[in-house]
Computed example of a mutant assay.
Amino acid sequence: MGNSKIYLVLIGIMLIWGLNVSVIKILVEHFMPVTITALRIFIASVTVFLVLGVLGKVRKPHSNEWLYIISGAMLSVVSHHYFLSTGLSKTTAANGGLILGLGPLLTALLSMILLKRRPTNIRLLGFLLGGTGVSFTVLAGDGGINSVSVGDLDIFLAILSQALSFIVIKKAAETLDPRLLTGYMLLIGSVLLFLISLWKEPAGLASLTHGTPAVWLAFLFSAVLATALGHMIYNHAIGQIGAAETSIFLNLNTFFSLVGAAVFLGEAILPAHLIGLLLIVPGVLLGSGSMEELVLRRRRKLQHR
């Protein structure tokens, strides 16, 4: 597959992920948040293993790989999706989508802190822009600082958990296919989320009888297309064109989440949301190092001509 086709596929994935924020918002309004999330993640894991089974990519992890799989499941699945589902039940999809757009920025920042790498001035500028953009987002309500939602904090904890998981996943991927790693993490995470739902939401299973056919169709869209196939294709694209170029497309996810919130949920897009978007996108490009790496790569290509 040529790069132009990969770019088109990535745009499609970002559209799906952006709309998925609104879909999850719909799901947590019809069902108990943790219960429906556990079921959604389980269906996603089954989908991943079915696809990998057809491709002949399924194998039993080695003993030293289980620690990374369980750690990744706790961070990338349990913590991320728990806070995402509970957060979207307390805040708007517009706010959630913008805060989730900080993923690459937080990943770069945590890598610098944990690996003790000194940030460049360009990255520091990116961190400043991204932080300012989120401030505009969470203060978008009419009440200023008093309007900050607990749900916004939950969404931030969701993306922070996922950013931490990327460091674990990167280590695990040295010996384990990232797609297979995704399947195992989703399966283990779904079981843990289900156990949490039994404790936190005693009426959770009963709430599953409340859905309409349209809501269950949205559920399948989120579980199969967004969570299972979306992550598999995105991870494959990283191997094809590199992490830097792939991560740039995540900015479209932020844009599409705003569009989805306005079109499908009728949420008001405030000036503060647009200011947040205009600050977060360049913040991610600069702070994640994507722009620096692309510039350096282009320079090397020109030197070798």
Rank of each mutant, 00 (worst) to 15 (best):
N3C: 10
S4E: 11
S4R: 13
K5W: 11
I6V: 15
I6H: 05
I6W: 06
I6N: 09
Y7Q: 05
I13N: 02
M14G: 01
I24W: 06
K25Y: 09
L27C: 04
F31R: 03
F31K: 00
M32N: 14
T35L: 10
T35C: 14
I36W: 03
I36A: 02
T37C: 06
S45W: 09
S45Y: 09
V46Y: 00
T47Q: 00
T47P: 00
V48P: 06
L50E: 05
V51C: 12
L52C: 12
G53W: 05
L55G: 15
G56N: 03
G56L: 01
V58Q: 07
V58F: 06
K60I: 12
H62Y: 08
W66P: 03
W66C: 04
I70W: 04
G72A: 01
L75W: 02
S79E: 01
H80C: 08
H81E: 07
G87F: 11
G87Y: 10
L88S: 01
S89G: 10
S89N: 10
A93V: 13
A94Y: 07
I99S: 01
L100R: 03
L100G: 01
L105F: 07
T107S: 11
L110D: 02
L110W: 05
S111D: 10
L115M: 12
L115C: 09
R118E: 14
T120Y: 13
R123D: 05
L125V: 13
L125I: 14
G126F: 12
L128I: 08
L128C: 08
L129T: 04
L129I: 00
G131Q: 10
F136L: 05
F136N: 06
L139K: 04
A140M: 12
A140Y: 06
G141Y: 13
N146K: 14
S147I: 15
G151V: 07
G151T: 03
I155N: 15
A158E: 07
I159P: 08
I167D: 00
I169Y: 10
K170P: 07
K171E: 10
E174A: 06
G183N: 01
Y184H: 04
M185F: 00
L187M: 15
I188N: 05
I188M: 02
G189A: 01
S190N: 04
L193R: 04
I196L: 12
I196P: 08
I196D: 13
P202N: 07
A203N: 14
G204P: 14
A206I: 09
S207V: 10
L208A: 14
T209R: 13
T209Q: 14
H210T: 11
G211T: 08
A214N: 13
V215Y: 04
W216T: 08
L220C: 05
L220V: 08
F221H: 03
S222V: 06
S222H: 09
A223F: 00
T227M: 07
M232I: 05
M232H: 02
I233C: 14
Y234S: 10
I241Y: 07
A244Y: 11
A244N: 15
I248S: 03
N251Q: 11
F256P: 02
L258M: 15
L258V: 08
V259W: 02
V263F: 12
L265K: 06
E267D: 12
L270H: 04
I275E: 03
L278W: 02
L279Y: 03
L279Q: 00
L285D: 08
G287C: 04
S290Q: 12
V295D: 10
L296S: 13
R298E: 14
R299C: 09
R300T: 11
L302A: 13
Q303C: 05
H304V: 15
